[in-house]
């Protein structure tokens, strides 16, 4: 007899079965053999999006392995180590809060529109106020984005500035255009857009300057001032003319990170079986 070896089949199964699921052991076929099992952990601190752990396997070649991964995690083996990487889609404990505008002031209103900034029968500006800002005094912000639905009038670029109102807790507007501005001011140039669109601007430095004020506290209100900055005659930004302030078209997204950490634990099985040299 030329064939020899060992075969053990499940109870009730024929020893001649060719279905590998019937075999408990068949020396004609190799098996995945466990080399070692490991437990590793990855701690992500607030603001982290990724972390990893590594094991040195000392096999001298790249082995097969198994590890249960989350949807965005990954793992790879080399001829010396296995690395398991935890990936988060957003930084741990990072939150973005959308604050809707509470009040607006426009220096100039015409039939069908309000002027945000630019030249419309003279230099024009406007102001926005947001209440209940959930940022602690001195808390570091990751991002602050001011969003406004607007369009332009005219034929040339509109030049304007965006500043914060440098106050601990911006009070309701009468005419706020004379209020003190933050030292952070954005100089903006907007090309002509013939229809309403979602404009946005990075106002991180302005908001950070305001919440860093000694008198600031969470829940306070803050504001922004828009001013013309040399636009030609009758070149301006406008927003829709409604009887009431349309907060849905004006909002402020604040992104910040709170403290804390999280630990993920992984069980890793390394096989003796080789996948590469």
């Amino acid at each position: 007899m030329s064939n020899y070896g060992m075969k053990v089949v499940e109870p009730g199964k024929n020893i001649t079965s060719k279905d590998p699921r019937d075999w408990i052991l068949n020396s004609d076929y190799p098996t995945l053999n466990i080399y070692k099992t490991y437990t590793g952990s990855i701690t992500l601190n607030a603001g982290d999006t990724t972390g990893y752990f590594e094991i040195e396997h000392h096999l001298g070649y790249t082995p097969a392995f198994l590890v249960h991964l989350g949807e965005t995690d990954s793992a790879y083996a080399t001829n010396t180590k296995i690395r398991v990487t935890c990936n988060l889609s957003t930084p741990y404990n990072q939150t973005t809060t959308r604050c809707y505008g509470d009040q607006a002031f426009w220096e100039h209103t015409a039939a069908g529109f309000h002027v945000i900034a630019g030249d419309s029968a003279g230099d024009r500006g406007s102001a926005l106020r947001f209440t209940d800002i959930p940022i602690l005094q001195g808390q570091d912000l990751d991002a602050a984005q001011l969003n406004y639905t607007l369009m332009t009038l005219g034929t040339h670029d509109v030049k304007f500035t965006v500043a914060g109102i440098d106050e601990d807790n911006t009070a309701e507007f009468g005419d706020p255009m004379g209020r003190t501005k933050t030292s952070a001011i954005n100089n903006k140039t907007q090309s002509q857009q013939g229809s309403f669109f979602g404009w946005s601007d990075n106002v991180l430095t302005q908001v950070q300057e305001i919440v860093d004020r000694f008198g600031w506290s969470s829940g306070n209100a803050l504001g922004f001032l828009f001013n013309d900055n040399g636009s030609e005659s009758n070149e301006c930004l406008i927003t829709r003319h409604t009887d009431n302030f349309n907060s849905e078209e004006i909002f402020l997204d604040l992104t910040y990170t709170t403290s804390g950490s999280i630990t993920y634990t992984y069980n890793l099985v390394v096989f003796e079986n080789k996948i590469a040299g």
């Binding site: 990724t50 991964l69 990954s74 793992a75 083996a77 001829n79």
Partner: peptide, 13 residues
Amino acid sequence: AGRWYGVPFKELS
């Protein structure tokens, strides 16, 4: 590169 990835097969950084 010598990096042999296992499942899942997501786009990897």
